[in-house]
Design a protein around this nucleic acid. Sequence first.
DNA 1: CTGAAAGCGCTTACAG
DNA 2: CTGAAAGCGCTTACAG
Lengths: 347, 347
Amino acid sequence: MARSGRVTLSDIAERLDLTKVSVSKALRDHPDISTQTKERVKKLAQEMGYAPNRLARSLTTDKTGTLGIIVPKIAHTFFADALAGISEVATANEYELVLCVSEERADFEQRHLRTLLSMRVDGLLVSVTEETNDPGVFTALQDQGVPLVFFDRALDGVGASTVTVDDEGGAYQAVEHAVRKGCRDIAHVGGFPHVGIGAKRRRGYERALRDHGIPVREEWIVEGGFDELHGYRGFKQLLNAERLPEVIFAVTFPVALGVTDAMKQVDPALQDDIQIYSFGQHGLNRFFAYPHVSVYQPARELGKQGVQILLEEIDDPDRLPSHVELETHVIEPTDETHPTYLNGRDG
Amino acid sequence: MARSGRVTLSDIAERLDLTKVSVSKALRDHPDISTQTKERVKKLAQEMGYAPNRLARSLTTDKTGTLGIIVPKIAHTFFADALAGISEVATANEYELVLCVSEERADFEQRHLRTLLSMRVDGLLVSVTEETNDPGVFTALQDQGVPLVFFDRALDGVGASTVTVDDEGGAYQAVEHAVRKGCRDIAHVGGFPHVGIGAKRRRGYERALRDHGIPVREEWIVEGGFDELHGYRGFKQLLNAERLPEVIFAVTFPVALGVTDAMKQVDPALQDDIQIYSFGQHGLNRFFAYPHVSVYQPARELGKQGVQILLEEIDDPDRLPSHVELETHVIEPTDETHPTYLNGRDG
DNA sequence: CTGAAAGCGCTTACAG
DNA sequence: CTGAAAGCGCTTACAG
């Protein structure tokens, strides 16, 4: 028995008067071994409760069957949903997930990256923090030949695969949607410009305005992070503008929530006058007193495709990086995606 | 260099004309080694980008520095929040998380359990599925000496540590709260009785009714699972009762959402007449048109304490199981916990 | 203070 | 079809 008190190959071999190599082969259905021996081995292994030590196996095979995941936040519906997709595809392919949360901090991200490397994960799926701007750590990975895929938030200047949504297009659609409703006073509480999604969503916003002959007003554009706090601050900043807009397009759903909080605090009646649009939806929007109009972001699908690509790169290390961009569309509260039971399929 | 193309102890040793043992010791600040040598070693290790292979280390030390986590769902705010707490404490103690999602399926749970064991995680933190009823797999873990802690959803008959909330007390408080508001017609859309939280919350509900001289009406009690679908079905079932209640107490927040969906579908005006109470809160409740009254469930704290206890058991294998029960309280929409920025600490 | 030996539990060639 | 050797990259005693 192993130090740990667990059954090892040798334990089985001893009881069967075989060598551990034969046992190992038998358990893996190696053609070297006779059917009869295989059966004896498997039976006893089962009886003894044998579970192969994956550490030992990984050390020799140089494959751990694990994927390193780094997300900036976990208690945010977008990342939780993405993780659900990631978990689904990983499990289906017999990979385990080592989950790291960077807390939007670049230093945490780097530390996690190092740890995951020393754990010899087979590949990495990363959504960068809002602070991340140094491609150095990531290009180093590439040099070491570790498969890497960015999802949702990618970092420019790294030759890695990416799975994103059409950020610019989605933002464009949102603004155009507001324009078609007759609005021209549209503000943007945006993200940091050095993060891809921040820059792209803003670009879409501005382009849509211009295409519809609406001047871009700097005082109606706020830049910041991606969570509630920045939405809250963003709205406060908009109060300094000459007048308030009719529509506020928020760079993320959490930012939209912060904007709402600020509006309610300043004057709840503002909610009747200002419509909030957000990039990214939320399953509970349908219960809101003032539901947001949102750009549908397929979080789960993003996670699934991310893993899919990562697995392909693991299987074929010479594969060139892929760049998948998922389509988005605007959803109004009224055509919100409802649970299937509301579609008459159940109940 | 290792097969993987990565730097090993021997690579460093060779360049420095030392043995790998000395290098290993130097890097770990072993007193055996002279300060001067340590510095030379560390400098070169840094230059060569050495990262110790944790697989190899774990194989000899019999410690992986990983925790296995199994949750029934991930895209549910409760578990995402709990995971945030888990991640926080684990990271602070230099443990990594191997995350598994059981999808509320007992067979998935068992498979994940086996995998985590073969990965030699140092401990397990589990919230069981709504199907789980066989303690066998878990007691087997105990026999193998693998530290195990249940959080939120524990399984009876396993001598493992548990971190839960005061389910019965919380349910009791919720019902009492409704009674104090003058309601006597209180229904319960509950969980499965074989899952601890289901049985306890129902018990609290019934006890509160009795203590206030209100008869328990079986037709106002529905049993089922813990997600939206079961809430939806639950309300539909309540429609068969002689009359509708004034209050519906849902066993979880997702169940409360399903109930709401069903109510809206039957007749949106019902929302003016029936108040929904739920065990477990949600950060977005404050934006709801009809906010729920809820029993506060400290998800994050539950996760944190779970890891804390697990780490203690890992450090001291002879420790007796602990049972932590966190307090709950009823929160009305008006005294909802708001983001800190709304408390004037920011903005 | 430095080193040679042994071992963790597995798998991958190579013999027979 | 079965076995003996070698090795994955580390650490833990034990010598010197």
